[in-house]
């Protein structure tokens, strides 16, 4: 016969284990596939933001140039972060 109490204990232990595992393992192939577009997308978005800020504030090239540089940095950040995720996973 099963001891119900013990079974319950085991079950709650398992549940706790699951809840502890909050920072989960990531699927590596999925992350590997996102790296390529990630770099470009950040630059694209940053350029758009810079373009519109310039248009809005009449400061023609400055925001655009600044945000393109920030966008490149953000893109590299994204890629580094993804690469770290793969190493961790």
């Amino acid at each position: 016969m099963f001891d119900l109490e013990e079974l319950k204990k085991k079950l709650s232990q398992k549940k706790n284990l699951k809840e502890e595992k909050l920072s989960p393992k990531n699927t590596q192939l999925g992350i590997a596939f996102k790296i390529g577009t990630e770099l470009v997308a950040a630059v694209f978005v940053a350029t758009l933001i810079g373009w519109y800020l310039d248009k809005w504030l009449n400061t023609k090239p400055f925001f655009l140039i600044g945000f393109i540089i920030l966008g490149i940095i953000a893109g590299i950040f994204n890629v580094v972060r993804s690469a770290k995720m793969i190493n961790k996973g």
């Binding site: 694209f44 920030l70 994204n78």
Partner: peptide, 24 residues
């Protein structure tokens, strides 16, 4: 301040990279 701007850009770039990847 600089890093917050970078983080915001990388957050906003998510839908772009997500959609462009599939489409392309």
């Amino acid at each position: 301040p600089l890093l917050v701007v970078i983080e915001v850009i990388s957050y906003l770039s998510r839908p772009v990279s997500l959609s462009v990847r599939l489409f392309a």
